[in-house]
Amino acid sequence: MAEDLGMNGNRLMTRAAGALALLALLAGCNGGSGSGVNAAPPLYAQIAQATRASIAKNRMHRAERPPLTRKMLDEIEGSYIEVTLERPDIFAYLSAALVRRDGTPGEVVQWRTEDEVTLTMRNGMLIATRGLGGDLVSADVAVAEGVTGPASGGEKVMYVRTGDLEERRLVLSCDLADLGPAPVEIVELTHPARHLRESCTAEGAAGGRVVNDYWVDSRSGIVWQSRQWAGPHIGYMRIRRLTTG
C-alpha cells in the first residue's frame, strides 16, 4: 500500500516535472547582468513569438479603418499623413519628425510611425523608407528648388536593399505629364491641386513599368495626395496629407 502510494507520488512528480519541462521548452527564458539585458530570447521562443505576430498581422490587415472627421483632425497638433501600403493593404498615420535641407535641392521631410517605420520625402517625392524590409535606401528624383513634386521627366534612380542585404540600382526612364487641375478632397476639406503623372519604364533585367501620381498645390508647396512606387519589395503606397500642423 505504501509502495503504491510512493509510486503514485513519483508518477505525479514525473508528470509535473514533464509538464514544467514542456512549458520551458515552449517558452525558453534568459537573463543576466549588463549585456544580458540586450541578450536575445532563446531561438524557439522567438520563432513562436514571430508566428503569433505573423498571424496577428494577417488579421490586422482586415481591420476596419477608424472613421476620420475634420473635427478630430483639427485637435491634433503637427503635420500628419496617412499611408496605405497597397500590397498587404495595411495603413498607418505618420507624423513629420524631421524637416531639413542638405546639399541636394529641395526640402527633406521624414515621416515616422509610432512603431518605428519612416518614409522620407524630398519635395513630396519618396526618397527613402526604413523599417519595412526590402527598403528604399536612397533615390535620385527629379527635384528642383521651388517646384513641388516632380520637376521634370528623365532618369530616376532607386537604390533598393534586397534579401541578401545588398543594394540594387534600379534605373527608371520617366515621362512627366500634367493632367490638369484636379481638386482633392481629404476628410471634408477640398484642396486645389494639379494632377501630375510620372510614367516610367525600368531599364535592365528588372523590366516593367511604374506610374506615380501626385496631386500638388504649387502655391502652398504641398503634395496633398500621391500614389508612389517604393521598389519591387514594398510596391505602391498611397499617401494623403491629413494635417499641415
Binding site: 525558453g28 549585456s35 541578450a39 532563446p42
Partner: peptide
C-alpha cells in the same frame, strides 16, 4: 564587468 548571462531553452 563582471557580467553574466544565462539562458534556458530546448
Amino acid at each position: 564587468y563582471p557580467s553574466y548571462r544565462w539562458s534556458l531553452g530546448p
